[in-house]
Amino acid sequence: MMTNLFSTFDPSTSIFNLSLNWLSTLLGILMIPCMFWLMPSRFNIIWNKINTTLHNEFKTLLGSNAFNGTTFIFISIFIMMLFNNFMGLFPYIFTSTSHLVLTFSIALPMWLSFMLFGWINYTNHMFTHLVPQGTPPALMSFMVLIETISNMIRPGTLAVRLAANMIAGHLLLTLLGNTGPSMTMNMIYLLIIGQMLLLILESAVAMIQAYVFSILSTLYSSEVY
Rank of each mutant, 00 (worst) to 15 (best):
Q195N: 10
A210W: 00
V212S: 02
M207E: 04
V160K: 04
P91Q: 08
A138F: 12
M187A: 14
H129E: 05
F9M: 13
G134M: 01
L23M: 08
I79A: 02
T184F: 06
H55D: 01
L30F: 02
L145T: 14
N68L: 11
F142T: 13
N48D: 04
L108T: 13
L116M: 09
I79R: 01
V131S: 01
Y211V: 05
M185C: 09
F36G: 02
W37K: 03
T128P: 05
F6P: 07
N44K: 15
T52V: 07
S141E: 07
M110V: 09
A164Y: 13
M140H: 04
H99N: 14
F67I: 09
I192F: 13
I153W: 00
E147T: 14
L89E: 05
L198E: 01
H55S: 06
L108Y: 11
F74P: 00
L176Y: 11
S64W: 00
T71I: 01
A163H: 06
L23D: 00
F127M: 14
I146M: 11
T157M: 14
A138E: 13
E147A: 14
L112D: 05
W22R: 15
G169N: 08
P181F: 01
L23N: 02
E57Q: 05
A159Q: 02
S113W: 09
F86I: 14
V160T: 14
V101N: 09
I46S: 08
L27T: 07
L108V: 10
M2T: 12
I45Q: 12
G177T: 15
S41Q: 07
S222H: 08
S182I: 11
M115F: 13
F9H: 11
M143P: 03
E202C: 15
L172V: 15
S113M: 11
M185W: 09
Q209I: 06
L20E: 02
S41C: 09
Q209D: 06
Y211P: 03
L23S: 06
T174N: 15
L27N: 00
N51M: 04
L172P: 03
F72V: 05
L61P: 02
Y92Q: 11
L23K: 05
S96Q: 06
I193L: 15
M196G: 13
M152I: 15
L38I: 06
P136V: 06
F74E: 00
C34S: 08
L173K: 12
L116W: 13
I188E: 01
A204K: 07
L26Q: 03
Y122K: 12
V205L: 13
I215C: 05
A66D: 00
S150Q: 10
S76V: 05
M81E: 00
N56F: 07
L158V: 10
M166N: 11
V224G: 04
L158Q: 05
D10G: 08
D10M: 13
A163K: 05
L30H: 02
G156E: 05
W111K: 10
Y122A: 11
S76E: 01
V160I: 15
W22N: 08
Q133K: 15
F104I: 14
A66S: 14
A163F: 08
S76T: 13
N85I: 04
A206I: 14
